[in-house]
Design a protein around this nucleic acid. Structure first.
Lengths: 243, 243
DNA sequence: GTCAACACTTATGTTTACAAATTCGTTGAC
DNA sequence: GTCAACGAATTTGTAAACATAAGTGTTGAC
């Protein structure tokens, strides 16, 4: 290896800097990560703002989010990995339709996963910390059902559900529950508003919360699982109206 | 809207076709779907052929798989969605390291999910169909443990596990188990080869298979769950040697 | 020896252009 | 009216080019 030429000195003046001709559009890296886009699309798909069967057009989404098509393609790849869309070569991506068998598969999973969440939450939090939820489900939630104010009922139920998942402190579990929840969110709401369903559910949540206030994690899990099986039964009975 | 001019006739000869100047590389659509690439990378990551912490370089992978960089980026987006890699803006993607807390989260999930698989498998298949597995775990598997032939033991254990998942007939469950299995595959093997662990596991599988041969789905689930908790305990005890 | 500054190299993120595949609208035959 | 053929329009998949950010190696100061 030939010796290097004598060293350059640090004090040499910097070469004059000529501005490169600007290439239109090639500016600083965009501030919108692909995650944000994935997240937003997930929510819209979950809430059926983008309907099942609907086609996702790359160019439209790129324009809407003001990002490159390449980024949209990556986001769509992520959504496909989550089972929210199906990509067909040369034809694009469509939002998955959930067929009935899929729903039942998901309900079996919800049973064990949400049961696990209830158990872990009971183990992780002091029993008295569930008192307020219990009181709410005994009193104000009962009144909501009687008044038929199901929107607010659902809101509180979903708060409880989220609280359980957070208290479970298992991020892998939380992620899995997210993955299935976003596929079934609209459906879960439809089940809750079935005749009599909200009151049955409320009573089941009361029983579970009572077990949690006793610190009985196994029982909380058992009751939460039973509650999900009960919801699955309601689905079986009313499936023709729901899907 | 103005009337269209008189119709063209079908019998007009086709215009002479001039071949477009070939653009290097822009040929027919590649035959390798992004799925294949994702699948291959998943397996390699699961088996630690690509080590945790290792960097995935787009250009290298594009050259290796003979596809465009864009496709590799989409594959990496999918892998990230599955939690197998972490992408860092402007720095690339690295294979996730599994820290200890993650492992325990996963074990809690494995407990309930593999328990569910055992239950569904018991419900779905006639009891006598598990006889052969039971006989194998009673006899030949015991001999493998005694001889210390743990490679073959693990192979048969994994066959049983796969059989349970298939018999569960719940594709959403299978997908979830895949997702966590690919993160823990090497670790599971390490647990099995811990001192005495294989024989304990074998006995647990025998008990579960006995319940399945009786058609007792709840008991099969309970025993499978207990077996996973037992594996988690071994992990807790020997964690310093395993990770 | 360490460490900071700097230049160069490399890899990632984006844009542009284009080929290939699919979709859509029109037209003519029946 | 339906249906097939065909051309035009649109969308998807890819390659190349380029901007930007980060990594790496060298050099000089201490």
């Amino acid at each position: 290896m030939p010796a290097k030429p004598a060293s350059r000195t640090r004090s040499r003046p910097p070469a004059p800097r000529r501005p490169a001709p600007a290439r239109p559009g090639a500016g600083p890296r965009g501030s919108k990560g692909a995650h944000d886009i994935v997240e937003k699309l997930r929510v819209r798909i979950a809430q059926q703002q983008i309907a099942p069967g609907a086609k996702l057009r790359e160019t439209d989404l790129a324009a809407e989010f003001k990002v490159s098509r390449a980024r949209i393609r990556e986001a769509i790849a992520s959504l496909e990995s989550r089972g929210l869309v199906q990509r067909i070569p040369n034809r694009g991506a469509v939002v998955m339709r959930l067929d009935l068998s899929q729903v039942f598969y998901i309900y079996d999973l919800r049973e064990v996963l949400e049961g696990l969440a209830a158990r872990l939450a009971t183990q992780n939090e002091p029993p008295e910390s569930w008192r307020e939820d219990l009181d709410r489900h005994r009193g104000p939630m009962k009144a909501l059902v009687e008044r038929g104010d199901l929107d607010e009922y659902i809101e509180h139920y979903e708060q409880l559900r989220r609280r359980l998942i957070e208290a479970a402190r298992n991020p892998v579990l939380a992620e899995m529950l997210d993955t299935i929840y976003e596929k079934t969110q609209v459906l879960i709401r439809r089940i809750i508003i079935l005749p009599g369903r909200a009151e049955v559910g409320r009573q089941q949540h009361v029983a579970m919360l009572e077990a949690m206030c006793r610190g009985d994690a196994e029982e909380a899990e058992r009751l939460r699982r039973a509650s999900l099986r009960s919801a699955k039964s309601a689905l079986e009975r009313y499936q023709r109206y729901i899907l």
